[in-house]
């Protein structure tokens, strides 16, 4: 199985260029809103097909894991997610398209990971899950999957405004020995090849995303860390305020794009 995925990843890497040419169409349907394009439009036909087919999409295993956990009692309070939130398809429907949000009761911006952990520790009296652990990836994927196809629409005014501004500033700040900002690749050079890969707009609407390179899904913050390290910059911690602010800005950049969780990319 692992060997197959590796071989597939190699094929995907080799065909990225051809894919980009073959799909140089103007109409990307729901995957494009004005000049904003989902990473889906930069992926190869093979990768797109893998995402589209629920049985072929390897990240659906994590979604299923999340669904099981949703109904499982955990912690001293004897509750499951289902105890309070009931049917996720109804109660979680807008979460994937609107988070991160400013949470008044804790006075800061909160993403789905943080919200899940707050529920676990405060309401369920259960242990917090680590970022990018199987449990956390599963639950975030399951919750966001309920918003599949919903247009991204995060709130950036009011108390979220300072976070948005901080994220926006992060996006254009050069960093690392390579001295590059997010915008250099994902605004100035989206669509251009860098080595064997087509640079995308760096949209966040498919996270947690299954990366063929990782051979598992990963959080947007994990992706931020990878980008930062690639330009030889010290990354921030997953869940840090810096990355939360950046998450809000990135989600706003993708406004109108459909939630694709769990997306598949190379």
């Amino acid at each position: 199985m692992k060997g197959e995925i590796t071989a597939l990843a190699t094929i995907v890497a080799l065909t990225t260029g051809a894919g980009a040419i073959a799909f140089a169409a103007d109409d990307w349907g729901k995957f494009q809103v004005e000049d904003r394009r989902s990473g889906y439009t930069y992926a190869t036909a093979e990768t797109q097909a893998m995402q589209d087919d629920e049985f072929a999409n390897p990240a659906m295993l994590w979604v299923e894991h999340g669904e099981e956990a949703w109904n499982k009692v955990d912690g001293e309070a004897g509750k499951s997610c289902n105890s309070c939130h009931g049917n996720a398809a109804e109660t979680m429907k807008t979460v994937g398209s609107t988070y991160p949000v400013f949470a008044k009761d804790i006075g800061k911006l909160e993403n789905v990971e943080d919200r899940i952990n707050r529920c676990r520790t405060d309401n369920m009296k259960a242990k917090a899950w680590k970022y990018d652990s199987q449990n956390m990836l599963g639950m975030v994927s399951y919750v966001k999957r309920q918003s599949l196809g919903q247009p991204m629409s995060v709130k950036i005014d009011g108390e979220a405004a300072p976070w948005f501004e901080k994220g926006k500033a992060f996006y254009t700040q050069r960093r690392g020995q390579l001295d590059m900002a997010c915008s250099h690749c994902h605004v100035d050079n989206a669509g251009n090849m860098i080595r064997a890969n087509t640079l995308s707009q760096g949209q966040g609407n498919g996270f947690p995303t299954y990366r063929l390179k990782w051979q598992k899904p990963g959080s947007l913050h994990r992706r931020f860390r990878g980008c930062n390290k690639q330009v030889r910059a010290r990354p921030f911690k997953t869940g840090s305020d810096e990355y939360l602010a950046l998450e809000l800005y990135v989600m706003w950049r993708g406004r109108g794009l459909p939630v694709e969780t769990p997306a598949v990319r190379n």
Partner: peptide
Amino acid sequence: FERVLKDF
């Protein structure tokens, strides 16, 4: 530079 990785 901003936040260069220690090795560099």
